[in-house]
Each structure stands twice: as structure tokens, then as C-alpha cells.
Amino acid sequence: MNKRTLNQWLGVSFLLICTMLVIAFLGIIIFDIFTKGTSSLSWSFISTDPKKGMTEGGIFPALMGTFLVTLMTALCAIPLGIACAVYLSEYAGDNAFTRLIRASIRNLAGVPSIIYGLFGVAIFVQGLQFGTSVLASGFTLGLLSLPYVITTTEEALKIVPRIMREGALALGATQWETIRTIVLPSAVPGILTGTILALSRAAGETAPILFTGVVFYQRYLPSTLLDEFMALPYHLYILSTQHHAIEQVRPLAYGTAMVLIGLIFLLNIVAFVIRSRYRVKY
């Protein structure tokens, strides 16, 4: 074996070891959570309220709270995001203003989530007087997921071929009619995939909802949009660091982590299925 072959062998082995190390992190995390969480996981864990200072019982209110706030997030982010993406991809000319908008959206995606939380407190909770509520949290998370919804929708609109637009325009449709009846319907799977991924991110966020509406424990489910709520990620945070009997509730914390991971994983699977099943081939 000459020197060059030896170098190549050593180098490739090094790269392989690094890759294995990265995979190992994922493996360790999943293994840890699953081995410690399965014991507390059951149907009643998902469907009952926490009891005795959260040392027993389930996570039903937290699950419902996460569901509700994610729904609110969707209602806020999807219409705004799609409208913005349609403008950027169909109407906006290639000028300095458009470039500025695009740069802002890209940078919005890099803003730390706690900054969104601060902004939510200042604007929604105190400025618009929503109080700490599902509404304020939903709007905050909506803003957080907006850049992702916009970029993925734009990408989905971009792959609709020019010929289809031109065909519609040639038949006498206005540009708006073309977008409404031709471009948007054929971009729906792409938009849906991107939106679900963005929502699955938002559902797992803790920092933005920390001060805009999530609570430690609540005996009733939120009945209006101005009520406070419990949420899975925050419940997990409480159980794993803030609880008075941390060792006792550790299995519950792992169970909650499993449910949260399972939920996000499910959303990702749905997005993946939509993408592979309805991918339009031009």
C-alpha cells in the first residue's frame, strides 16, 4: 500500500467515524427517551388530566392546548404566508424592493425564538390587550412560522411550469384568474407539505409561548381564545426542571417527550406522504 492510498484510507475512515458519531447522537437521544418513556405511556396517559400536583395522571390538557395553539398558528400563518408568497412569486418585479423583502424574510427565519416571545408580549399581550391567551400565543407562533411558510409556498409556486400559466392567459383569463384556478391548485401539495413542516416546528417551540399564554397547570380546558392553556413542550420543561418532585415525575417527563416526538414525527410523515403521493410531474 503506497502513501497516497494509505492517506485516502485514513481520511475516508475519519469522515466515516464523524458521520457515525452524528448518527450516534440521534440514536442515543431516541434510545434514552424510548427506554425510559415506554413504561408510563398508555391510553390513559394521553386521555386523562394530571393528578396530585402532576405526579400522576396524564397529559390530556397539554395535548389539547398544543393542538389548539397550533390550529391558531395555522389560521394566522397560512393565509398571510400564501398571500405573501403569491405576491413575491407572481407579481413582484425583480427590483431592489423585492430583494429587500426577500432578504428580510430570510433573516426573519434566523431570529431567535425568544425574540418572538418578547415581541409577542409587547404587541399581542400588552399592546393589543389580548392578555396571556391562546390567541396571543397563536399569533406569536404564526409569526415564527411565517418565513418558512412563505419560502416553501414560493418554491411550490415556482415549479408550476410557465406553459400552464401561458395556456390560461392565452384562453383569456386574467392574471388573478390564472393564479386562482391554475397555479394555486397545482401547487397545493407543495404548499401543504411546507406548511405542515412549519407547523410541526411551531408545535414544538417553548420560548415564544412562555410569556404569551402557556400555564403551569390549569384545571379546565381553554373555552375561549382568550383563555390560557397548557402545552406539551412547556409541560415537559416543567416536569423535567421546575417540578418539586423531579425524580418522582421523571417517567412522566419521558412519556411526555415521547408523545411530543411522536406527534412531530406523525406530522412529518403526513407531509412526506403528501409530497410523494401528489407530486405533480410535468
Binding site: I114, T206, A207, P233, Y237
Partner: peptide, 15 residues
């Protein structure tokens, strides 16, 4: 980009 993400991360460092 990775660095930007790490600086802004809240819950991990909090815990």
C-alpha cells in the same frame, strides 16, 4: 448559520 441558531437557542441552555 449554525452559530446563529446556537446563539438564539433558549430552552436547551435554560435547562
Amino acid at each position: 448559520l449554525g452559530l446563529g441558531r446556537a446563539i438564539g437557542e433558549t430552552m436547551t441552555v435554560l435547562m
